[in-house]
């Protein structure tokens, strides 16, 4: 029997969409029984949100004031304390899971499988390496827990409609005081979330300034799209870091991705490989982005983007 403990990601109020994607991945393991751990300050409503996902068999609710904000060094020992008896411990390959899960793996004395993109068996998976330029099939050793992170862009969300039981558990673990959360600075926006949006418009270095990036926002708003950026645009200070798409930013899989003034470096392409349709607008007809774009348009973005926005709005 495959017993999977999956660590839910949340912000204290709502469950992050990454959790429902991890559930889908976990449900592809043979004979999977899926338990989801919700570690929060007061996780009652979070737990019932997770209990409503199909394929989830049980939710384990661990309430503790120390869990008011996720800190890996504080969460990891609690997860290890409840991991007994599970053959697998999974988390999302978001910054939350990337930070936390290797700490869990080390405490359990095992290696981790990072970024599962497909499941071939209970211990056999595929994952990307070299910025996605190669795919490796890996096998985890038998007889010890399989700790892994799930590449969320590879999975659809588990549907609502489940009715898992919820068990409140109190955990006896030594929680360190050496790591303290101070603050979170997050650019609140009403636009669709980059990681789950069906459409995404991204701008690159070519925009030239934060002011000019307004062109991208306007087009995105006309499309009802989320907004992303290349690393060069983030480095230049046009937009905040959470908008970066690519190997070291967000890996996304929208139905439509429009890359504007982005050259198409491999590290950027890694982040959009799973997009449905890729549109590229670039003044250089030789730009590498055109090698993978489904629809390409060569020209000056400062002329094309306002025209496109007008055409869509009308």
């Amino acid at each position: 029997m495959t017993r999977i403990l999956l660590v839910a990601e949340h912000d204290g109020t709502t469950i992050n969409p990454s959790t429902a994607k991890c559930v889908t991945c976990a449900s592809e393991l043979p004979d999977a029984e899926i338990h989801v751990a919700v570690l929060a300050e007061d996780g009652a409503s979070l737990a019932s949100e997770v209990a409503g996902l199909t394929s989830v068999d049980k939710v384990i609710q661990v309430d503790n004031p120390a869990n008011s904000y996720p800190v890996a060094a504080i969460l990891a020992p609690q997860i290890v304390a409840i991991a007994d008896g599970y053959s697998h411990v999974f988390g999302p390959s978001t910054t939350f899971g990337k930070d936390l899960m290797p700490r869990v793996a080390a405490l359990l004395g095992v290696n981790q499988i990072s970024d599962i993109m497909s499941v071939l068996g209970s211990h056999c998976f595929r994952r990307p390496i070299y910025a996605g330029n190669a795919i490796v099939t890996v096998e985890a050793p038998a007889g010890q827990p399989v700790v892994a992170t799930v590449r969320t862009a590879s999975y659809a969300s588990a549907a609502d409609g489940g009715s898992a039981s919820i068990e409140a558990v109190s955990v006896d673990a030594d929680l360190p005081g050496h790591t303290r959360f101070i603050e979170l600075r997050s650019g609140k926006s009403d636009r669709p979330d980059l990681q789950t949006a069906a459409k995404v418009v991204s701008g690159g270095r070519a925009l030239g300034s934060a002011e000019n990036f307004d062109l991208i926002y306007k087009l995105a708003d006309a499309l009802g799209a989320g907004v992303g950026a290349s690393r060069a645009a983030v480095d230049a200070g046009y937009v905040p870091n959470e908008m970066q798409v690519g190997q070291t930013g967000k890996i996304i899989a929208p139905k439509l991705y429009i890359a504007i003034g982005i050259s198409g470096a491999i590290q950027h392409l890694t982040g959009i490989k799973d997009a449905g349709t890729i549109v590229a607008i670039n003044k250089d007809g030789e730009a590498p982005i055109f090698e993978i774009a489904d629809i390409g348009l060569v020209g000056d973005l400062f002329k094309i983007v306002p025209e496109l926005e007008a055409a869509i709005s009308s």
Partner: peptide, 16 residues
């Protein structure tokens, strides 16, 4: 964790 096989990722084709 043993690495059993290596493959190229699915390539996207150049479009229109």
């Amino acid at each position: 964790i043993s690495e059993i096989a290596f493959a190229l990722p699915e390539q996207r084709q150049k479009g229109i």
